[in-house]
């Protein structure tokens, strides 16, 4: 007994997914950076600007 419908993606997650997809399509942004951004922004409450700055500078994990 399993429901075949999939639960809708929450709106904040949808927006983030679309953003990351568009950024990934831009070749100048390294994939590593994109992945780190997705990880950080998935929990915006826990994220901080310093961490994002470090990621955007390309030196963060």
């Amino acid at each position: 007994m399993c429901d075949q419908r999939t639960a809708p993606t929450p709106i904040p997650q949808q927006i983030l997914d679309e953003t990351i997809e568009e950024l990934s399509a831009k070749s100048e942004l390294p994939m590593e950076t994109v992945l780190q951004l997705r990880k950080q922004l998935s929990k915006p409450d826990a994220a901080d600007a310093d961490a994002l700055v470090a990621i955007l500078k390309g030196g963060a994990t």
Partner: peptide, 14 residues
Amino acid sequence: LEAVETTRKLLVKT
């Protein structure tokens, strides 16, 4: 959308 606003502010701050 509070989470969206939180993200937006975080991006502005960054």
